[in-house]
Simulated assay, not measured.
Amino acid sequence: MTSVETRQVKAKKETTIAQPDSPEVESPVRSAPTRSLALDGGNYDLKFWDGTGVPKAIRSIRFQVPQGRDPVRYSDSSPLIELPDGSRYHFGTQAYKYRRQQQTVVENKVDLARLHLYACLEADRAAEDLCQFHLQLHVSTPEPAKSQESLRSQLMGVHEFKRNGIPFRVTVDQVEIEREGLGSYRYAQRLGLIAESGYTIVVDIGGGTWITRLMDAEGDVIDENVMDRGGAYELATAISFDKRLSNLLGTTADPAIVMDGFKTGHNYADTGLSWSLWLDDYLDPWFKGIFQTIKAQYTPYMARVTRFLVTGGSSHLITERLAGRKLFAVMPEPQFANVRGLFPINEGLQLCMTTK
Rank of each mutant, 00 (worst) to 15 (best):
N225L: 07
T311R: 06
V339H: 06
M353E: 15
I239G: 09
N267D: 08
A119M: 08
T141P: 00
K97Y: 02
D281C: 01
A253M: 12
K288L: 09
A119H: 13
T212D: 09
L349W: 06
N43H: 14
E143C: 00
E218A: 10
D70W: 01
I222Y: 03
A11H: 06
A119Q: 12
V105A: 03
F91M: 13
G183F: 12
N267G: 07
F161T: 10
E82P: 00
L277E: 13
Q19F: 07
P300T: 10
D280S: 09
A32R: 13
M1A: 11
D40M: 12
R304I: 00
S77T: 15
T251R: 15
D45R: 04
H266N: 13
A113F: 04
V158M: 12
S3Q: 03
I17L: 06
E196V: 01
R213I: 01
D254F: 13
Y268R: 07
K56E: 13
A238N: 13
V221H: 05
Y89P: 11
L351N: 07
L245D: 15
E82A: 02
A238Q: 06
E122R: 10
I205K: 05
L83F: 14
V172W: 13
D242F: 12
I58F: 14
Q148I: 10
K326H: 04
P23K: 03
I61T: 10
D70R: 11
R30A: 15
G206C: 03
Y268F: 11
E128R: 07
P300F: 02
A95S: 15
E82S: 13
T6E: 09
L182Y: 05
Q189M: 01
V65F: 07
F133Y: 15
D220A: 09
D21Q: 14
L83K: 14
K243C: 05
K13T: 13
T15S: 08
Q64M: 11
V72E: 00
S3W: 00
S78H: 03
N108T: 02
V258A: 08
S147H: 07
E122D: 14
Y96P: 00
S197D: 12
S77V: 04
G192M: 08
G208S: 00
Y282S: 07
M302G: 04
T200N: 06
T15K: 01
H138M: 02
A32Q: 03
V106L: 04
L191P: 08
W275Q: 05
A253V: 11
R325K: 08
D85I: 06
L115P: 09
R62N: 06
K10L: 15
E196Q: 09
D129H: 14
P255L: 09
P300V: 02
F48Y: 15
L46C: 08
A95V: 09
S150I: 14
Y298Q: 03
I81C: 07
M259Q: 11
F161A: 10
T52K: 12
D50K: 03
L191E: 15
K13L: 15
K97W: 00
T209Q: 09
T252H: 12
F48E: 04
G181Y: 01
L322I: 03
Y89Q: 12
M215V: 00
R321G: 10
A232K: 02
R152G: 08
H266C: 09
I257F: 12
Q64C: 10
L135V: 05
W286K: 01
Y98R: 02
G250K: 08
A188G: 05
S78M: 02
H316T: 07
L327Q: 01
F343Y: 15
L37Y: 13
L117F: 11
P285G: 09
